[in-house]
Amino acid sequence: MSSTIESPRAAAPRRKGANWEKWGWIYMRVSGVLLVVLIFGHLFTNLMVGDGISAIDFGFVGGKLSQPFWQWWDVAMLWLALIHGANGMRTLVNDYVRSETARKVLNGALFAVAAVLIILGTLVVFTFDPCPAGASADLLPSFCGAA
């Protein structure tokens, strides 16, 4: 009579559904590299080029935010950094919050905060008016007078 040896491993129950952890991990690496370039580029143009930090005023910021190049630069920084930060916080929540309910609430709050900030920030960057009516001309970017 022959006998068979039972499989040494009974299939462990695995959670169903999509698993985004791999993509989360890749996102953190890619966005991290991009953010280093974007943030140091941002700091360099704001603080080092030309008059440096003393040049920063409403006119300087308004001037930058009226150029598509800097609009997209800032929006990229905003999206990448907020998602990067929120995902990092999500990892901490998953590490340290044991109650399933509290975990869901905190992760939900993180998602909501990141979403609201991203939407608000994107709106501001693309709808910013560098030449508000009634402001004194010496505070505004140089191109406002022409309009």
């Binding site: 695995r14 959670r15 698993n19 952890e21 791999k22 990892t91």
Partner: peptide
């Protein structure tokens, strides 16, 4: 596939 789990290598 097993280690690609939520509690796998990505942690």
């Amino acid at each position: 596939d097993i280690l690609n789990d939520k509690e796998g290598v990505w942690r």
